[in-house]
Nucleic acid binder design. Structure first.
Lengths: 235, 235
DNA sequence: CCATCCAACCTGTATATACAGCAGGGACCC
DNA sequence: GGGTCCCTGCTGTATATACAGGTTGGATGG
């Protein structure tokens, strides 16, 4: 009968009336019981529609009071950080990984800080891998790994498995933190990524946690002219 | 009785078992009916829990087949792009905006491309605003605005209202696209943001749509040493 | 042995019903 | 007049029930 489910129709009804200007930010919308009367749907259906619009940031609700049009629907728009190897393959291109370094070593202080007190003065696995797309360097991955979380890290075949994939297999991911910055490229980064003079480095720092402890800290360097983060957000 | 609602307890039960490694990526989890039997909740409660975990990217469902642990929970980790003015105020600092330029002009070709064929050879509003935190330049906002969407743009008092806030008021946001890059700073950007020599420019390009048409295209320039995008993602 | 059909199981949606708890306004009492 | 209490309407949660439609594997028949 209907192409769209009822609760989606209710959601569209609400967003349309907001779009049309009938309901302005801060204004009160119909109550669930009023939706039941006005649109002839059940209260649970109206509830689901309103609940999902709250999750989407379109509405806000106050128990006992009512449902209102959210004031600033666009305060925070999401952007995605993704896996380079998967991205390259998704573009139909050839992904190659060259292992530059693989060792067990004491981390320098700034790196050790990411692993907390429990890991000071302990050796960590350290890998440096250059990811290329059709032969052109795209990402330099400089990663320190907690041996308690991934004890077999040194034996991984990194030409076929990315560190990220290995970590996902041995340790369930719990928390990820990202910091994105534009920095001046360091000499070794310039050399490996084949950067042109003065070309900036788009640096993503990624720290992951697993089973309650820091699992890995990675610095992902990218050529400014060949890499971008892209995201689309539909309301 | 229970501090948390039942459906939240079911969600925790699922994420705990994933975290513990009982259910690995790709593996099938219990069906709704099995949750009814195992946990003694109603099917609607299990359904709500599973549905919300799908929305969170933890699970994926196939009608007629089953519910599965999402394959790559880290394939796409969200990062938020936020409003600079609000961010500065949230840090308890003083936000000031200096209007550098406000005009109606024909956009250069690369800018016009963002507004599509319907807008070629039409004048757009063009504003350049420097946002500072406690007097230090943080973001240079170079924005082109569709006059059909915001006809009063030229009369806005930009020392108190940000372009973003004005656009949110006059036109409901429909779609946002972001591109983040690290670029070599151009001379006027260096001067206005007071960049040191060779300091890179973290550039965010933001295109917005409203009422089915492009509303605004902004280039947000940031000093590489003073700005970062940060995001935490908890599973 | 292979193709076809069907039954069992799954998710997706929709409804009626119930009770708890919060918010706000009006009535009531001091 | 002012403070208190209660009543009404609202959201939040939980359940039982029902039907539609996709998926899968096994039974059945050629």
């Amino acid at each position: 009968m209907s192409a769209q489910p009822l609760y989606e129709q209710v959601k569209s009804y609400v967003t349309e009336r907001i779009r049309a200007g009938d309901w302005r930010p801060g204004a009160r919308v119909l109550s669930e019981h009023e939706f039941v009367r006005e649109l002839g749907v059940s209260r649970m259906t109206a509830n689901r529609a309103l609940r999902e619009l709250v999750a989407a940031g379109v509405l806000s609700r106050v128990a006992g009071s009512g449902t209102f049009v959210a004031d600033l629907p666009a305060a925070a728009q999401p952007l995605e950080i993704r896996n380079v190897a998967a991205d390259i393959r998704a573009r139909g291109h050839v992904h190659t990984a060259r292992l530059i370094r693989l060792e067990s070593a004491l981390p320098p202080a700034p790196v050790a800080a990411h692993f907390g007190k429990a890991m000071v003065r302990r050796s960590l696995f350290h890998s440096v891998i250059l990811h290329s797309e059709n032969g052109t360097p795209l990402e330099l991955e400089d990663r320190w790994v907690n041996p308690r979380v991934a004890p077999d890290y040194a034996t991984v075949e990194f030409s076929t498995t990315t560190p990220h994939e290995h970590l996902m297999q041995v340790a369930p991911l719990e928390r990820v933190e990202h910091v994105v910055r534009a920095v001046v490229a360091e000499p070794d980064v310039i050399a490996l990524l084949q950067l042109s003079p003065a070309e900036p480095d788009l640096l993503i720092e990624r720290t992951t946690w697993s089973r309650g402890q820091p699992a890995s800290y990675a610095r992902l360097h990218h050529a400014g002219s060949r890499f971008e983060l892209r995201g689309t957000y539909d309301i």
